[in-house]
Each structure stands twice: as C-alpha cells, then as structure tokens.
Write a protein that binds this DNA or RNA. Structure first.
Lengths: 251, 251
DNA sequence: CTTGTTAATTGATACACTATTGATATATTG
DNA sequence: CAATATATCAATAGTGTATCAATTAACAAG
C-alpha cells in the first residue's frame, strides 16, 4: 500500500495566530505594546480583516492579547503559567546565563548579484537575479554575541536600506515586504568567523585559549520559509561560544 | 485496490486506519497537522471516499484524529503516546550531507554518586543520591559522529546494564523504566572533547587544521522531561563538525 | 489649566458571496 | 457487510463592504 503522506497547511488564521504568538513569546512584540490597527495590519499581511480577527481572537483565548474597542489590541504576556499550553517550540540565541534582550546593529545592506556573491553552498531562493545581503552585529543585553549575514530576494521594485531595519527583521518583512515567516530550519555547527568580522567585535571577546587562536565559533545556517512555503530568507550566524549559545526547545 | 499488500487479510478500511495510526505514532504525521481533504486523500490511496471515511472514523475513536466539518481533519496525538524519539524528530544530529541512520555503541554504564561525579554545572534532577552515567559512541550510517554522556536517576531498585541499552534509549526508558520523554531543551555550543574520548574515535577524524589542534567540537547539552514534567535525563554530546551537524526545525 | 464638544480612529458586528471540506444519504456491485 | 460511486447538505475559510459603538485626539470656550 502506498503511504498517504500528503498533508495540508493549517488554516490561514491559525498560521497568523501562531506566528504572532511566537513573536510575543520571543519578546519581538513587547508586553503591553499596541498592535497596528486591524485594518492596517490586515493590509500588511495581505488578508481580509475578518481573517485577521479570527487570528486575534485565538490570541485572546490564549491570554496573549487584550482587545479594547475604540482603543486597540494590546499584547499581554502572562507569566510562565498558561504559556505551557501555547508554546510548543522555539530556537534562539541566548546568553550563557540565560535569556538576554536581543538587539542588532546593521553593518551593511547591499544589492548583489546572486550568481556572483551568494554563498556557493547556499540554497536556491527567490526569483530575482539579485539578492539583498544584510550584515549585522547581534547583541544580547548589549553584549556582543554574534555576527550575521542575511540574504533575501531583491526584485527590481524592492528596496531596503539600513534605516529601514529595526532590531527585528521579521517585523520589517511583515510590514514592508508583505511576507512573514511560518517555518524555519536551523543547522548548527562550528566554523571560523568570516573575514569581514569587525576587528573591535572579535577583540572584545575574552582572551581564553579555547577559541582565540583560530576564532572557531558556533555557526548557524537558517532557512526561513514564508506563508507560501517558499524559501524567503537565508541567514548565516557566527556566535561567540564564550558569550552565547543556541537553544532549542520542544514540548 | 489491487496492491500486493492487501491480500485478503483485513478489511481495507482497517488497513488504512492502521497505516495512518502507525504514521501518526512514528511522527510522520505530526501532532496538530492537517490531513489532505478526504476526496484528495481517497484519490491518492486509490479508494473510495466512503472507505477512507470509515478508516478516519476509527482513528477518531482511538483519539488520534479530530474532524471538523468545513475545515479539515487534524492529527491529535494523546499525551500518553507523545514521545520525542522518532526519526522525524525536529531536533537531531544528521550527517553534513543530510540524514543518516543513527546507531550507538555503549562504552560504559555506571552507578555513581551524584555529588561526587555529576557535572558541577549540570542541573538538579531526580531524587536519588546516585545516578546512572552512560557513555556511548553515536554513529550515523556507521560513521563515527559523536560521543555522549547521559545521566538518569538511579533509585535503589533501578538497575541498568550495558546489555539493556542495545536499542533506542527512549524505548528502554519507556518499556523498562516506565517513563517517556515529552519535552526537551537543547543548548548548543562548542567545546573541547572530554578526556575519555576513545583514541580510535578521535583519530578517525580528518586531519583538517580547523579543529585538530584543540579538538573543538560541537557540543550539546540536553535536558529531557518526562510525562510528569520532571527532568528525567540529562545528556552531554560532543559531535564532530566535519561529519555531523545539529538540526532543528519548526513547521 | 480645565471642561465640553467635535472629529477621527479603532474594534465589533452584520451581511453577501465564493470556494472548500466534512457529513449524510442513496444506489450499485460483489 | 465491504466497497465503489454519486449527489446533496452543512459548516468552515476567506474576501469584501458597510455600519455601529467605544475610545482617543483635537480644539475651542471659559
């Protein structure tokens, strides 16, 4: 008998709800903050208001959102209690002592020809000939923790500049580029830090003999898929193992 | 239906139901995922919709499926049968070229006093004064890939020997120790390989300059929680980054 | 500075419409 | 009873628009 593997996507409102739940859980959407208006948000996501409202209803049922007519929708992040039900899994960088508020400093944003500049071993993604290459520093509690190179597709009509990019790229993708991430795969290994690593960055790390001579750091390759299941973002991250570690949890 | 497998055994709908139950059990059909529509699925299986629906009814009665008219059929995996140990697990080691059949060779199993031998920085776990320390080699497609140290609680009446651990550890936990793993947290970083690494193991790795001088490998600390949400297993894994990598996936 | 009114914004509700999907019923063949 | 095949019903998903109700911001009057 043939196996019946074919699966389907979850309903759109569920996927949106889960995406927002993850962003709340990760702190990308801060506790107490107000979401954009439903009309605007629906427009950014490219869905009807009714669909978005279904997603928001599910968030309120999970206790992650408070909705006030005439005022707005407010993020509510309950203490560890109810979270157990809503959070299944996540991956992130965190400080060795745990946690850490993530921030980032963009070093460069460049439109580059994929054939010429994109990593040879990287995956195919997007339809344009060019891609945007974003390089940035990542900090946790203001401590230099990792450097990162991110690739997204660069169609003719898409433009990205350093000023556009806040700490969370996901918010930028959703609000400006009209796509959002519904699935990721991380491959974690070790690697030498790249030649473009800022000198000040590497120097600020301790002088331990463990990794100093060869600058061998933790290394993450991430493939992120959007709502149409296309590879929308490819990133490479080198993290300093004396400062941070990669954490994955599943419940 | 004229496939070779269905040779006058059980009714077709029972066979289909059992096949799907196996796939749910194995994690091929993940908890929460949505099946293809009944019409499409029946077509793929080469059976009539009515037959498929009988099979789905049986899954519903076993509690493995939730059916929602107008929306879809959703996999529901009861907590009792949730276990992380499937080849489709979202957190795993794999070969650099992808995949790899995991096997293991146990080096030692010892009952040791926790206070004396358990890693100082490790977490509290269990109630007994002793713990079992299991050390083993892990292979992927028979290729040496990682070494691993695992700790589980060692109450007075619990006994573990090398012979017990031929198969999957999770299977042993479940069948002999009466607990099963429902959640894990992995912390991934880099570290020197421990002094008990078998010489033959380390030598077999390539002579690349990347990690040869300091033997800096990928390093995973895993905390595994059982059905009562207690820390039931704590493991430390060193993996050779020239052979394997750690992979995490969501969605 | 406070107060009251007005206008704009925002969430809530309702409805129309299309498409998909599970549920039900029936007829037919072994 | 098992299985196929077909038609029809009912619930959900999603888009789109209009309207109501609560809140907020703006502003003029005192």
């Amino acid at each position: 008998m043939k196996t019946a593997l074919s699966k389907n996507r979850l309903p759109l409102h569920v996927e949106i709800s889960e995406m927002l739940a993850r962003e709340i859980q990760a702190g990308i959407l801060a506790d107490g903050s107000r979401l954009a208006s439903e009309r605007l948000m629906a427009d950014e996501l490219g869905v009807a208001v009714g669909t978005l409202r279904k997603a928001l209803l599910e968030l309120t049922q999970k206790g992650l959102l408070e909705r006030v007519q005439g005022s707005g929708n407010y993020v509510r992040k309950p203490k560890q209690s109810q979270n157990i039900d809503t959070i299944y899994s996540f991956f992130r960088l965190e400080l060795l002592k745990g946690g850490g508020l993530p921030t980032a400093q963009v070093l460069s944003v460049e439109r580059l020809n994929k054939a010429e500049y994109f990593p040879a071993l990287g995956p195919q993604f997007g339809t344009a000939a060019d891609g945007f290459r974003i390089r940035r520093l990542r900090r946790l509690n203001s401590i230099n923790s990792a450097i990162e190179e991110i690739w997204i597709d660069a169609p003719k009509n898409r433009n990205v500049s350093v000023e556009d990019l806040s700490d969370s790229l996901y918010l930028f993708y959703r609000e400006n580029l009209k796509f959002w991430i519904t699935g990721v795969e991380d491959q974690v290994s070790v690697n030498k830090i790249p030649d473009w690593t800022p000198i000040t960055f590497a120097q600020k790390t301790s002088a331990s003999s463990l990794n100093n001579e060869h600058k061998i750091w933790g290394y993450i390759e991430r493939k992120s898929y959007d709502q149409t299941n296309m590879l929308a973002e490819y990133s490479l991250t080198w993290f300093n193992p004396e400062v941070a570690r990669y954490v994955a949890r599943i419940k």
